[in-house]
């Protein structure tokens, strides 16, 4: 497999792996918690790297994901103390963990040489450098297979728990009556998100991974009314963005993840504007009928009185 094809496939797989759990992240209104997770896994990754010596190792990925869970549980604890107002609990824990990570990076902790720039936005090209060879044949970057494995895991988890996730998202109390352990399910789901964030770190870094997770699903949310449709659209948007981001980065000689993030943002705005325009046109067409209808019902209710 050629190196370029490897990078393209890696970009697509990473985008898809992040975007799938992103659907429930968006629907459950957990986007900014994921922002916290993505910052907080940095020290976990560096410590793991110092021990294991390989950013793609499953041991590192699972271990570092635990740091992400610290943010989820820490936020819950801070909120439950009732001592802090509004959304402050979410803004208090992750900066400190991230700060620890940055200090480790800049102090060359255990001789881990990690560029701060890479820590923030990753490096898709670098991530695809080490090939996996089977029987002397290069079958693409080793890292691609790590992400593919995680893609299967994410898809599997969502397929198995789709119903439970759906109920806990839209009717939490009802879910508890049904005997679904909502808190456990939420923690498990957030752990999986954390694992995804860590795994994607190599390619997209600590900050822009949230773009891959959240924006495709949010764009799909604009134009879908059913969950299955939303999943399909999310996957399509994720891949379009990966291809476009790769191409932009290639032409401009710049970072793939940053290009992807900007493209996803612009695509979101385009879809939002188009959706609103379409709605307005539709409404205009029905305007006369509808306004008559509304006033008719109002008049009717008035005359009842």
């Amino acid at each position: 497999m050629s190196y370029i094809l490897g990078v393209v496939l890696l970009a697509c797989t990473t985008a898809l792996t992040c975007a799938l759990p992103g659907v429930f992240v968006v629907l459950r209104k957990h986007s900014m918690i994921v922002d916290g997770i993505s910052h907080a896994v940095l020290p976990g990754i560096i410590i793991g790297f110092a021990i294991v010596g390989d950013l793609d190792s499953p041991v590192l990925i699972l271990g570092a994901a635990v740091t992400g869970l610290l943010v989820v549980l820490g936020n819950e604890w801070l909120t439950e103390t009732g001592l802090l107002a509004g959304d402050a609990p979410q803004g208090l824990i992750f900066p400190s963990l991230f700060a620890v990570g940055i200090l480790m990076v800049s102090m060359d902790f255990q001789h881990v040489h990690l560029d701060t720039h890479v820590a923030l936005v990753g490096d898709m090209n670098l991530a695809a450098v080490i090939p996996l060879t089977v029987g002397g044949v290069n079958i693409g970057p080793e890292y691609l297979y790590v992400m593919l494995g995680l893609l299967l895991l994410n898809a599997g988890f969502i397929a198995v728990f789709s119903r439970a996730l759906k109920i806990t998202t839209f009717a939490r109390q009802f879910a508890e009556i049904l005997g679904i352990r909502t808190r456990l399910l939420n923690t498990a789901f957030m752990f999986l998100v954390s694992v995804t964030v860590v795994a994607a770190f190599n390619a997209v870094g600590a900050i822009l991974v949230i773009s891959l997770l959240v924006v495709p699903a949010a764009t799909a949310q604009l134009i879908s009314t059913r969950l299955s449709v939303m999943f399909a659209l999310t996957a399509a948007i994720a891949i379009i963005g990966a291809l476009a981001g790769f191409w932009i980065a290639y032409v401009l000689d710049t970072g793939t993840s940053a290009a992807m993030a900007v493209f996803y943002g612009v695509l979101f705005v385009a879809v939002a504007v188009a959706e609103r325009t379409a709605t307005r046109l539709r409404r205009n067409r029905h305007q006369d009928v509808k306004s008559e209808e509304t006033s008719a019902t109002l008049v009717r209710s008035a005359s009842v009185r």
Partner: peptide, 11 residues
């Protein structure tokens, strides 16, 4: 907020 933040930061 996540959309806005990542788009601007990516840029």
């Amino acid at each position: 907020m996540a959309i806005s933040m990542t788009t601007f930061f990516g840029f």
